[in-house]
Design a protein around this nucleic acid. Sequence first.
DNA 1: GCCGTTTTCGGCCCGACTGTTTTCAGTCG
Length: 587
Amino acid sequence: MDNERVAAVLSEIGVLLELQGENPFKVRAYQNAARAIEGLAERIDDLAREDRLQEIPGIGEAIAKKVATLATTGDLPYHRELRETVPPGIFDVLRVRGLGPKKAKRLWKELGVLDLRSLRKACRDDRVKDLAGFGEKSQRMILEGIAFLEKAADRSLLGEALPLARELVAALTECPAVQRASLAGSIRRGKETIGDLDLVASSDDPEGVMEFFTGIVPDAETIARGRTKTSIRLESGIQADLRVVGGSEFPACLAYFTGSKEHNVRVRTLAASLGFKVNEYGVFREGSEKPEDIPDEEALYRALGLAYVPPELREDRGEIEAAREGKLPVLVEERDVKGVLHCHSIWSDGRASIHEMALAAKALGMKYLGIADHSKAAHYAGGLDEKKLVLQAAEIDAVEKRVKGLRILRGSEVDILADGSLDFADEVLAGLDFVVASVHSKFGMSEDEMTARIVRAIENPFVDCLAHPTGRLLLAREGYRVNLEKVIEAAARTWTFLEINGNPRRLDLDAVWARRAAQAEVKILLGPDAHDTEGLADTEYALLTARRAWLTKDDVANSLPVTRLLASLRRRRNPEAKRARKPRKRG
DNA sequence: GCCGTTTTCGGCCCGACTGTTTTCAGTCG
């Protein structure tokens, strides 16, 4: 059993014990153990076999025994028995904002709430507000929380869906009956959340492909199986739809199922005005049954007098006009990204050492790595105080000497305090190569207060970048209230970067706002917000979002080589240089 | 349940916020 699943079971045991009113420290012990295993470099079943589990800090005799059982047999009776003591729907109830184990238990024991359905009914029947510790307001908040969860329920994060979809495409490509295979749909467009996975393949033997596809994943359930379309449900609950067409139909089919619907409508309207018909089988001259010769998507767009529109732009946000006039941007690409800032390490809440992060960054071909651990106000994340920051600087220098060909920059993700001041004094910030600032507390401020708070932070000459500007968590939490137009205006005025945070749960700024920021001449930083070596790859999700935002290489701060990036950072710290600059608007 | 050690048990992160209360419990980050 892999580390992630073992960790998930331990963490669930923690929740179950909490529901039972167990000793909170015992609860925490399970959660600590889960976190330790999640961040482990070695395979947990190897450690179990070698009887080395207790070497992991946070795992003692009792948990080691349970983990050993779990890792070797794939089952833990203790966990199963605990699960039987609570209604399965209670885990959904716990996902409602504002409801923790204590309140969930009270709802369950006193009102018979077993799942979201009965919880909503209890609220609507006005029974929740009379419960001790609840009131009118909590009843209303719960109803809102349920609505939010339901809106999010049938969608997945890009970061979960894309790796799965790529595995499926890779597997399909191996199938002898398949000629070509590709991602399609919103996942190909890089949308931040995904309803289901759309795949397109071409073949002379669709039956053979469908046969292969239904058996592609051992535990997948087949929902529908036809000659041209088959749907399966993966173990994670995500649905994958495969469409199979003949070889010559592939490009039109791919374009059709990549969408978006709005983009397709515009393409078909344009085609009609030129005397063509476009559908999922090809491009047809009016009155003809015989399709035009369209070898690939480029040819399809060319036939309509359009430059090739990259999938990320296909949203009907001006791309058809730009393609017709030859004014599509040259979108930023993976090879343009020279390095990353905004990464964490074990000094705060990261799970890898600076050395491990450095090796991983170098392996990814990056030229620089910025370490930006949390500042002291972020207690929950083990934020660094001034003393530790100095110690960390020494380690960074030492690691940099060991890892040739990689610059390691000293930074901080400094908390923006409630009044807009920063968690470190200017003299401390001045000693760093770069500073990203972000909001991690007091999300409930009014829009005016929050905007003033953030603008004040941006105006600090040592703040180089505002990280995750809206604080949203996809499918989980709305961002705080903030006037982004004013934030962009302040960033443009002070040469402050705005981040596209690549953590799949954030993708913040989103594509629409990142585009507006770039139009206002604000440079965008693609930040992985990596908390382990694998997290460095989240830069890709920031990149996809940047492409959806029409960004070119020049719009992206970390497309600069390190010397020019550092020069640019130094320049923006000089107030004289700042005042001299007049922002100019761009189209 | 883990850890450190004071080798046998006491301490384990905590401040802020919110909606309840009338001094605080529960949740969140």
